[in-house]
Write a protein that binds this DNA or RNA. Sequence first.
DNA 1: AGTTATACCCGGACGC
DNA 2: TGCGTCCGGGTATAAC
Length: 269
Amino acid sequence: MPELPEMETYRQQLAPLIQGVPITGVEVTRPKSLNVEPEQFAQLLRGNRILQINRRAKHLLFILATGELLVLHLMLGGWMYVGSDEDKPDRTFQVTIHFGAKSLYFIGLRLGYLHVHLPEEAEAIFKKLGPEPLQADFTFERFRQTLQGKRGNLKVTLVDQSVISGIGNCYSDEICFYAQLLPTRKINDLSEEELQRLYQSMRTVLLEAIRYGGYMESPLYAGDRLTGGFDSRCRVYDREGEPCVRCGHPLVFEEVSSRKCFYCANCQA
DNA sequence: AGTTATACCCGGACGC
DNA sequence: TGCGTCCGGGTATAAC
């Protein structure tokens, strides 16, 4: 599922492919993906250009030459492909944006969406989100302050977008594993040393995931060797029963706060 | 502040 | 091949 590293991978790879290229047409087969009428959407985009692609948490922001933003959230299982009629995936496209011969296909948008906003509207939406975990000014000191007074468990706190933004179900497990902390630990029970481990692990895991292209089933374009490169490097997520890479004990699956949760019961404490 | 429940949504995998 | 069934899971919101 697309979390911060996946969206960051998309952002980096998408930029050189579509930035500045005139939009020649739009197709919408799922109007619910949009917050405006499909005709209005097409009218706004046709002849327009995406000048820049930014990311905020799990959102991608396509900045149009005319000043509006397209705010993308892939939610569960959404993904994208850039290609042409010849090599496009055999899937249902909810939205397609054509850039001459090549097209950007949006796939698996069930709860996902592509919304048109003015910059100030987007800002208001993003105000509810917690800090970006990888932003340079999100120091350990700020991290500690952010978690100050929290009493929930590690898992539920890490995936809470209003506390820290961008981390989802997969990376919360990976971060806990790297930090050798049980996802069920209470935030307020963590020692100073454990908090530091958690902070370092958060940065290390997210940066590694971005470097290897995140956790995705499908490439972004033909010949893409980066997207999904982190799949095989996931240490615990969806690996119930497999031996822990650190100690060899079989990994455990448990529902924690009604979420899928994977961890090593032997070397996480 | 935490915890729990519920609705949202539908493609595609799977079973027969 | 074809048709019916059901799952997944982040987010918003409400109730306690």
